[in-house]
Amino acid sequence: MTTTRLTRYDRSMLRLMNDRRGLAWYATAPRRRLAVAAHVTLTVALGGLMTHFFLGEGEPLWPVAVMAVLLLPWMVATGVINGATRGLLELREHVLDERQSVERGRVLARAHRMTTLLLAAAAVTLLAAGLSDGDAPKAYAAPLLIAALVVHWLMPLWVAGLHAQDEPAEDDVLETEAPASAA
């Protein structure tokens, strides 16, 4: 951390993001991958339901009810990923240490590259659909652009969750500290 004074907000966020009570949810790489997969799945489901709600004519409000139910597990998955990364993307820059700042830069660069590829694929898909039909499918352009925006917003979180490292085991911490204290 830098010498910048932490605000009350910074201290509370730092405490929250380093709370180890949820460690069991993301202690191993497979659990973190599962949390990211669940988050991606729930995001796709919420987006699909929202698209259905707006494009469906005369549809009842059942998609809204299902979205409300899916929002809670989506928020839990978001919290699990944020806990696994110790708030890498949620904490302000001056709260992060040097290693975390570098990691944040790496995560954002990877996410940017992945989102660029996704946007290129979306553009090619719309253009190909327009060429085969003779006219671009205008009804799907807005949902596709909104989906691309959501992915652009969430991709850093997913990348950070997939690249988070395991917490050191208690024995590993003691072994690395013992030679330093003996010297």
Rank of each mutant, 00 (worst) to 15 (best):
M1H: 11
T3Y: 09
T3V: 10
R5E: 10
R5Q: 11
D10N: 09
S12A: 10
M13S: 12
R15L: 10
L16M: 14
M17E: 11
M17Y: 09
R21Y: 08
G22Q: 05
G22H: 04
G22L: 07
A24I: 05
Y26I: 03
Y26H: 15
A27R: 14
A27K: 11
R32Q: 00
R32M: 01
R33C: 08
A35G: 01
V40P: 00
V40I: 15
T41D: 14
L42N: 07
A45H: 06
L46Q: 12
L46C: 08
G47A: 13
G48P: 02
L49F: 02
T51K: 04
H52C: 10
H52P: 00
H52S: 12
H52Q: 13
L55F: 04
G56V: 06
G56N: 05
P60A: 11
P60H: 09
L61H: 13
W62A: 10
V64R: 14
V64I: 15
V66C: 15
V69N: 05
V69W: 13
L70Y: 03
L71W: 15
P73M: 07
M75I: 13
M75E: 14
A77C: 14
G79L: 08
V80T: 09
G83A: 13
R86F: 08
G87Q: 00
L88Q: 00
L88P: 00
L89E: 01
L89Q: 02
L89N: 03
E90L: 15
E90M: 15
R92Y: 11
V95F: 01
L96V: 08
L96S: 08
L96R: 11
L96N: 06
S101T: 12
S101V: 11
V102P: 01
G105R: 09
R106W: 05
V107D: 04
R110Y: 05
R110H: 06
R113W: 13
R113Q: 14
T116V: 15
L118Q: 07
A120F: 08
A121N: 05
A122F: 14
L127K: 06
A129E: 08
G130I: 08
G130R: 03
L131M: 05
S132L: 12
S132W: 06
S132Y: 04
S132P: 02
D135K: 13
D135E: 15
D135W: 12
P137S: 02
K138M: 15
K138L: 15
P143Q: 05
P143T: 02
L144V: 11
L145W: 12
A148Q: 07
A148P: 04
L149W: 13
V150N: 03
V150K: 02
V150A: 09
H152Y: 10
H152L: 11
W153D: 07
L154F: 07
P156D: 01
L157P: 04
W158T: 00
V159P: 03
A160I: 00
A160G: 02
G161A: 03
L162Q: 08
A164L: 04
Q165C: 04
E167I: 01
P168R: 03
P168H: 01
D171K: 11
D171N: 13
D171W: 12
T176N: 00
T176Y: 02
E177I: 15
P179M: 08
P179E: 13
A180C: 09
A183C: 09
